[in-house]
Design a binder for these strands. Structure first.
Lengths: 217, 217
DNA sequence: GTCTATACTTGGATAGAC
DNA sequence: GTCTATCCAAGTATAGAC
């Protein structure tokens, strides 16, 4: 971690330029991870996409791996904020499933999850990267867990489906579905699956007698 | 695909040496993918693990990518045969879940699925690799689908759970769970999840009235 | 078929000019 | 803070000896 950034308290010096370059590099890194994968996300490739010089990767982030982690942080923060906003507007389990599908499609189109997937598999080849990636996945699981918890609240299902444990499966499923859909460019299989989940959810809601859909008008 | 192997009808010439070297390289490639990931599975790394020369990768397989595909073929064939044998001995849905857990743990220990995961994410950086990997995943989905079909046979669940669609989710889940478990080296989360699935299955079986466990003695 | 040697390319990382 | 130039390590791939 040679340099973690211009953290100075600066008056109003040209930090603007620096911050913008850092942002461009982070975006370039996201793009490279998404389109070329971990193995293809080299300093040169990222710099090319960022429209700036290769040496800046090392000046600002110290190493390619650090830049890639910053990219993962960026995607993670962006998406979690978005998820949270979407979930806040939803109520029961049925709502949650609908929100999940909408979010899944957005992520698929934009390749957000590909960034995570590439970092997970790339972690094997770069010493020390694993723990860093692990730490960045925890918030996803926590978010999912708490979304499930509030959706199942006051429902007979909550005894049967402990949020923490299901959340892990949901994150894994999300990751796997995204990798497969990106690989073959076919989203029909995952859409069909979401349909089934929706059906099951409706059935569970009816059976449990709990309000499966929030009453909103 | 410069050279796809000594396919000659050979009398009894020294094909033995060749075949053994090919096998060693394939095993080395599996090991490298598992432990170093796609980005770390170079010709040199594989040759080192195989105890033979780097040039042989190109002599026998034409390129590193081709060797990696051969490695995926090998793992795929090996595991599918094993899965099939295990599933053949099982009956209803409960049996299937138990078999799935056993198999999952084996795969986790041996890192078999890591090979698949690395190839999926590595496919992004190597032109032409994507479709080849896609073709090698299809059998996994087909296997899962037919295992589900026979487990759900004569069960009220079969109307609710079309095997083809669920299979895709199962494969994705399997993949995602394995990646996460390998990343953080913690299998407790996935084991807890399997416990829940087992419970749910038992409940479904009791509710549907179908034999959830095969009668075997 | 296997090994050594080597040509060529790409990538990580740093030095120094501006 | 950014760019050019450069060093060095590692990788793919091939040629040629054995």
């Amino acid at each position: 971690m040679a340099r973690s950034g211009t953290r100075s308290v600066v008056g109003q010096t040209s930090v603007a330029g620096s911050a913008e370059t850092r942002a461009r590099l982070v975006n370039g890194a996201i793009e490279a991870l998404r389109e070329e994968g971990f193995a293809g996300a080299s300093a040169r490739e990222i710099a090319r996409r960022s429209g700036c010089n290769q040496g800046l990767v090392f000046y600002h982030f110290g190493s390619v791996a650090n830049l890639l982690l910053a990219a993962l942080d960026e995607v993670s923060a962006m998406r979690l904020a978005h998820y949270q906003a979407a979930v806040d507007k939803s109520g029961g389990l049925s709502d949650l499933v609908e929100v999940a599908e909408m979010i899944f499609e957005e992520d698929l189109d934009a390749g957000h999850i590909a960034v995570l997937a590439e970092m997970i598999s790339g972690a094997k080849s770069t010493p020390g990267l694993g723990p860093e990636v692990v730490a960045r996945i925890a918030p996803w699981r926590e978010f999912t867990s708490s979304a499930l918890r509030s959706a199942l609240m006051n429902t007979p299902l909550s005894a049967l489906l402990p949020p923490e444990e299901i959340a892990h499966g949901v994150v894994a499923l999300y990751l796997g579905l995204e990798m497969l859909a990106h690989l073959d460019g076919d989203r029909s299989k995952v859409l069909a699956l979401f349909d089934k989940v929706r059906q099951m959810t409706a059935l569970l809601g009816a059976f449990g007698g709990a309000p499966a859909q929030k009453d909103r008008r």
